[in-house]
C-alpha cells in the first residue's frame, strides 16, 4: 500500500517536474489575496516587493550573464585591468537605498493600520493548548475547544493504512470551528496555556503568537462569508502539525442565531 502510493507519487512527481511550467496556474503557488482589507494590502505589498526583486534580479543577472557570454576567454576576450570607480560605487549604493525607501512607505502605512485597535465591536480570546485551541467570546459568555477532526486524526496516525486523499480537508478541519460575523471589526486576543503557539489564518492576513502568561491583541474584519482555514504556526511539540484553525464567517443574522444556540450549551462560568 505504502510502496504503491510512494511509487505513484514518485511517478507523478517526475512527470510534474517535466511538465511543470504550463500547469503552474492550477496550483496554489502564491499567497492568497484573502478576504479582509488588511489581507489585500499585504498581498499587494507582497506582489510589489516581489516584482521589484524580480526586476533587480533580471538586471543584475542579465548583466552578469551577458558578461559571461561576451567576456569569456574562449571567445578571445582580453582581461581589462580596471578595479575601481567611485562614481559607480556611489550610484549602486544610492539607488538601492532609494528603492528601499520606496518599499518602506507602503509597508509602514499597512503596519500602522494593523496596529489600530480603535472601534472594536466584539472580542474573542484565543488560547492555545497542546494541541488544540480554546475560543472565548468575551462579551457573550460563549466558549469552547476546537480540535482536529476525528477523521483526519485517525488517518494521520503513523501507519494508519488510511489514505489522506480520502479525507475531506485533511488536517485542515476541526470538530468545532470559530464562528465570526462578517463586516464587523473583531478584536482577537491570543494567549496560551502551556507553550507558545501561533494562530494563523492566511485568508484573514493574520498570524499572532499565543504566548503563555501574556496576551497579544490584533483585529480582523472579514468581508465575505465563507470557511477560512489555517494552522498553528509556532512549533509547539509533537502534534504541532495537527491543531488547525477553522474560521466560519457568517452574516449577522446567522451569527446571532448561532450565538443563541451556543449560549444554551455553554455552562455559565466566568470567562477566564
Amino acid at each position: 500500500m505504502f510502496i504503491a502510493r510512494a511509487a505513484w507519487r514518485l511517478l507523478v512527481g517526475s512527470v510534474i517536474l517535466l511538465a511543470a511550467v504550463p500547469a503552474l496556474a492550477e496550483w496554489a503557488i502564491n499567497m492568497p489575496r484573502g478576504v479582509t482589507p488588511i489581507s489585500h494590502e499585504i498581498y499587494d505589498l507582497h506582489m510589489t516587493i516581489f516584482s521589484i526583486c524580480v526586476a533587480i534580479g533580471a538586471l543584475v543577472f542579465g548583466v552578469m550573464f551577458f558578461s559571461i557570454w561576451k567576456h569569456r576567454k574562449s571567445r578571445g576576450a582580453k582581461a581589462d585591468n580596471f578595479h575601481e570607480s567611485q562614481t559607480v560605487e556611489i550610484i549602486w549604493t544610492v539607488i538601492p537605498f532609494l528603492i528601499l525607501i520606496g518599499m518602506a512607505f507602503p509597508a509602514t502605512k499597512t503596519l500602522i493600520k494593523m496596529e489600530d485597535m480603535s472601534d472594536i465591536e466584539m472580542t474573542v480570546k484565543i488560547t492555545g493548548y497542546q494541541w488544540m485551541w480554546h475560543y472565548d467570546y468575551l462579551e457573550d459568555g460563549v466558549s469552547f475547544y476546537s480540535r482536529l477532526d476525528a477523521n483526519s486524526n485517525k488517518t494521520r496516525q503513523l501507519d494508519s493504512g488510511l489514505n489522506p486523499g480520502d479525507v475531506p480537508d485533511y488536517l485542515l478541519n476541526v470538530d468545532k470551528p470559530l464562528v465570526l460575523p462578517v463586516g464587523v471589526k473583531i478584536r482577537l486576543l491570543t494567549t496560551a496555556a502551556d507553550v507558545i503557539h501561533s494562530w494563523w489564518v492566511p485568508q484573514l492576513g493574520v498570524k499572532k503568537d499565543a504566548i503563555p502568561g501574556f496576551i497579544n491583541e490584533f483585529w480582523t474584519q472579514i468581508e465575505q462569508p465563507g470557511v477560512y482555514r489555517g494552522v498553528c504556526a509556532e512549533l509547539c511539540g509533537k502534534d504541532h502539525g495537527f491543531m488547525p484553525v477553522v474560521v466560519k464567517a457568517v452574516n449577522q443574522d446567522e451569527y446571532q442565531a448561532w450565538l443563541q444556540s451556543q449560549r444554551d450549551v455553554t455552562p455559565k462560568t466566568a470567562s477566564l
Binding site: L189, T191, F214, E217
Partner: peptide, 17 residues
Amino acid sequence: PWLGGMGKGVVTNELLW
C-alpha cells in the same frame, strides 16, 4: 510593566493577572 498592565499590557493584566 506589561504583566502589570502598563501600555499594551492592559488586557494581559485584566484577564490573566
